[in-house]
Computed example of a mutant assay.
Amino acid sequence: MDKSWMHADRRSRAFELGVEELIQFALESGYNVNKLCCPCMNCEHSKSLKAGVVKDHLVEFGIDKTYTNWIWHGENVSNVSVPKEHSETVEQNPIGIGQNDYSMGGSDNEEFSEDSDEFLRFVEDGDKPLYLGCTHFTKLNGLVKTYNLKEKHGLSDACYSDMLILIIGMLLPEGNEVPGSFYDAKKTLCSLGMEYENIHACPNDCILYRDSNVDATTCPTCGPSRWKLGKNEIEKVGVPRKVLWYFPPIPRFRKMFQSVSTAKSLTWHADEQLNDGKMRHPVDSPTWKLVDDQWPAFGIEPRNLRLALSSNGFNPHSSLSSRYSCWPVILVSYNLPPWLCMKRKYMMLTLLISGPKQPGNDIDVYLQPLIDDLKTLWDGVQGVYDSYRKDYFTLKVVLF
C-alpha cells in the first residue's frame, strides 16, 4: 500500500507547526542532532531525542503552546523572564531543614547558562499557570505551598497524595497543573537538585547499612535488629530504628557553576583579592598557600574548591522539655568572597544525623558517604560547565 500521501501530509503539518524552523534553529545554534530537547505536549521538555524523533513527536502531539522562547534550542536565556512567584522556595525539606540551608543557589535575578537544561526545564515548567486563566499561582508556586503544609503539619506521604487528588478532582478546574501524587511532586522538586538518600544506621552508631552491610538485618558489631520493634517485641520490617539523611554535594557543586554570578564569585579570590600582605580572606592564610605549594596542579586552577566542614546539634522540636538532638553536617566554600562565604544560602547541608543522642566520636561512621564523595572530588569530577567562562573543566575539591 502506497503511504507516500501520509508522509507528505505529515511534512506539511510539521511546516505549519514551525517544526522545521525550530529544529533548524537548534542545529544552527550548535546543538547535537542526536540529542535535542523535545518540546512536544507529551514529552514537555523532559527528554532529549534524535532530531527526526523530535520532529515526529511535534507533528503527532503538537508543540507546547507556552514555549515561546526557544531557550532549550539556542535562544538567549537572558530574554526569559521568571515571575516573582518563583522566588519562593520550599521552606522545609523532607526532614524539616529550611530549603535555603540545603539547596545551593543564587538570587532570583541570576542568569543561568544555556547548558543547564535541567534547571531551565524546571523553570519553564513551573511558569505554567496552576490552571487555565489563573493569574495568582503557577504550577511551582502551588506545589511549594502544598509541600510546605505537608511538612509543617507532618502529613504522611499517603495523606499528601490524597489531598492532591482532592484538589485536582474537586477544587480546581480540569486541566490543572497540580501533581497527581506525592511521587510526582517529589519528582518535580528533584529537578532543583533536592535528591537525598536515606541510609539506615545501627542505633548504637556502629555501622551504616550500606556497601557490604546493605542487606544485613542486624548489626554485625553489637547485634541489635535493624528494624524497629512494635508491640510484643515484633519487628516492623521496613521501618528502620535509625536513619541518616545524605544530600550528595556533587550535583549541587555542578549547579553552583551553572549560575553565571555564582561561577564568577567562586573565583573572586583569584581575580579581585588584593595581595598586600594583609589577611582579609582564607586565600591569605598559610593553609591556602600550603595547598598551592604541595599540590601545584590543584592550586593553578582557581575554580577548584576549598571547603570547610562544620557540625553541631540542635533540637528540631523547639521544646525545652525535649532532649532530642539532630546533628547537621555542613560544607562551606572558602572560594566565595567574605560577604558571601557565610551566607545561609551558600551553606551546604550534606548530612543530617538523627537523634535522640549526639553521635560523639562515632560521627566518623556517619561521615563515610560524604568522605567517599570528597575522595571522588579530590580525584576530579569531569564535565562541569562553567557558565561564566562558558567552558567545561574538571572540578577538584580539598577539605581544609
Rank of each mutant, 00 (worst) to 15 (best):
F119K: 05
G277Q: 12
M342E: 05
I71Q: 00
V329E: 05
K55S: 12
P173G: 09
H45F: 06
Q273F: 05
D386C: 12
N361H: 07
V260W: 02
R389C: 05
R252P: 05
Y67I: 12
L166R: 12
R13T: 13
L305E: 01
F257H: 00
G175I: 06
G154N: 12
P83E: 09
R306W: 12
V59S: 03
G98P: 04
R11H: 14
E110K: 11
Q358K: 10
F298G: 08
P282V: 06
D9G: 05
T287D: 05
S354N: 14
P338K: 09
N176W: 03
V214N: 00
I371C: 04
L374Q: 13
C134M: 01
A158R: 11
S285A: 12
G230K: 07
L290W: 11
G96H: 11
E114G: 02
K345M: 02
E28M: 07
N93F: 13
A8H: 10
L189V: 00
A14Y: 06
R210S: 01
A201V: 07
Y246M: 01
C219W: 07
L395V: 09
M6H: 06
D125E: 14
I207L: 13
T188H: 15
T262S: 08
Y131S: 07
G18A: 06
S78Q: 06
E177A: 07
Q92V: 01
K236S: 01
P302G: 05
P39Q: 13
G383Y: 12
C341I: 11
V329S: 04
K187V: 01
L149Y: 00
C159K: 12
N335R: 02
D2Q: 11
T262L: 11
P338Y: 09
P220T: 15
K343S: 06
G360K: 10
Q382N: 13
K47P: 00
C341A: 11
N315M: 15
K186C: 10
W268Q: 08
S319A: 03
F257K: 00
L36P: 01
Q294W: 04
G360C: 09
E233F: 06
Y388R: 14
A263Q: 05
S12F: 02
T350F: 00
S354L: 05
W5V: 08
K65L: 03
D184K: 08
D2E: 09
I165A: 15
K145H: 14
D271Y: 13
N148M: 04
S116E: 09
G18R: 10
E118G: 04
D101H: 10
V260G: 03
L320S: 09
L305S: 01
D117A: 07
K55L: 02
W70F: 13
A270H: 14
F247S: 00
L36D: 03
S29D: 04
C222D: 11
L192P: 13
L274P: 14
L377E: 02
S261I: 08
K236V: 02
N32Q: 11
L192H: 07
N79I: 04
R241S: 15
T66I: 01
N204V: 04
M279H: 09
D362A: 12
K343H: 15
E91R: 11
E75Q: 03
R13E: 10
S29N: 15
Y366H: 14
Q273P: 00
C222N: 00
R11A: 15
S12A: 14
